[in-house]
């Protein structure tokens, strides 16, 4: 049966299956052929049972039809954003760019969404476990990338959890003039992107943003949490109900405005001009947080800032609160 394995390897190589996959497939077959031998099957019987290597290679490819047009890409800047291998995603569409300025418009319900920059020249949209890809509009027209779940087709009775995941790769140097993202329960990961205008709206989905460069940014969630690591921006507006907001290493050349009902805000190594915190019971905790001015309006929510550099002055411009406090140490 060594010939079978050799032929299978040859066929898989012809079909440009990755070395890793080939190795796995060959290992599995060695094991299965051995098991067949152990049960007393002779060469002929085994041959009949395993069929032709060409047919198997073809079936392997056909049975994973989406992976056949997968291009092998090298991601240098995926970072923590895409935790899993890009190889586990299937390429849906590739769009070629005419201009360096694009807008991105994403409207999903329960699917997770990843956007990251990479060392390539086209926009690539991948999916994983998305059940009915035909229910989505995925297009690139007038420099606008649109990924949208068609509303009319959402099932009311979802028998099983059928949410999948999208991954969008955009060229590293691209400028996103407008980034609009809406979801109900899907989580989002966005990494290494420059965008002038950012609007993110989520009901319960969490959001993770890393290495982001944005001018005007608006975040709004009900119960979803927001985590930002590495941000350069001009204006940040955050609206939370019960979701929490966490930001590390950010430089904002303008104001940060927070509206929260009970969601907490945590800032670490953040610089900005004014910081305005309006809340019912949420707290704002800042470590190495250097706003030039700060104001608080709350029922019971506090602002607590602990900084090492005491020479940088923080002015309290207004404080309206029932039982909340502002502590700057």
């Amino acid at each position: 049966m060594n010939k079978f394995l050799k032929d299978l390897e040859k066929e898989l190589k012809k079909l440009k299956v990755s070395d890793k996959d080939i190795n796995e497939i060959l290992e599995d077959h060695k094991e299965m052929i051995e098991a067949a031998k152990n049960e007393g099957l002779d060469e002929e019987q085994i041959e009949a049972k395993f069929g032709k290597p060409e047919a198997l290679a073809k079936d392997l490819q056909e049975d994973a039809p989406k992976s056949t047009n997968k291009t092998s890409i090298k991601l240098t800047d995926v970072g923590s954003c895409v935790k899993e291998d890009v190889d586990s995603f299937n390429l849906v569409k590739t769009f070629h760019l005419i201009s360096e300025d694009i807008s991105v418009n994403i409207g999903l319900v329960s699917d997770d969404f990843n956007l990251t920059s990479y060392d390539g020249e086209s926009i690539q949209v991948y999916e994983k476990n998305v059940k009915k890809i035909e229910d989505y509009t995925i297009s690139f027209e007038n420099n606008e990338l649109l990924i949208k779940k068609e509303k009319g087709k959402i099932k009311i009775f979802n028998f099983s959890n059928d949410s999948g995941e999208f991954l969008v790769l955009v060229p590293k140097d691209i400028n996103i003039s407008k980034f609009d993202y809406k979801t109900v329960s899907g989580d989002a990961n966005v990494n290494g992107v420059t965008s002038k205008e950012v609007k993110i709206k989520s009901t319960s989905g969490d959001l993770e943003l890393t290495n982001f460069d944005g001018d005007n940014m608006k975040f709004s969630t009900v119960s979803g949490d927001i985590e930002i690591l590495g941000l350069k921006g001009k204006q940040v507006e955050v609206s939370l109900v019960s979701g929490d907001f966490e930001m590390k290493q950010a430089v904002i050349n303008g104001s940060m405005v927070f509206h929260s009902v009970s969601g907490d805000v945590e800032l670490f190594e953040v610089e900005c001009e004014e910081a305005d915190f309006k809340t019912v019971s949420g707290d704002l905790e800042g470590k190495e947080f250097y706003p030039s001015e700060v104001s608080l309006k709350s029922v019971s929510g506090d602002i607590e800032i602990t900084n090492r550099n005491v020479l940088k002055e923080i002015n309290v411009i207004s404080k309206k609160t029932v039982s909340g406090e502002i502590n700057i140490n």
Partner: peptide, 12 residues
Amino acid sequence: VNENTIYPILRR
């Protein structure tokens, strides 16, 4: 049915 139908399914 033989191996070459079943194995690709297992894998997928």
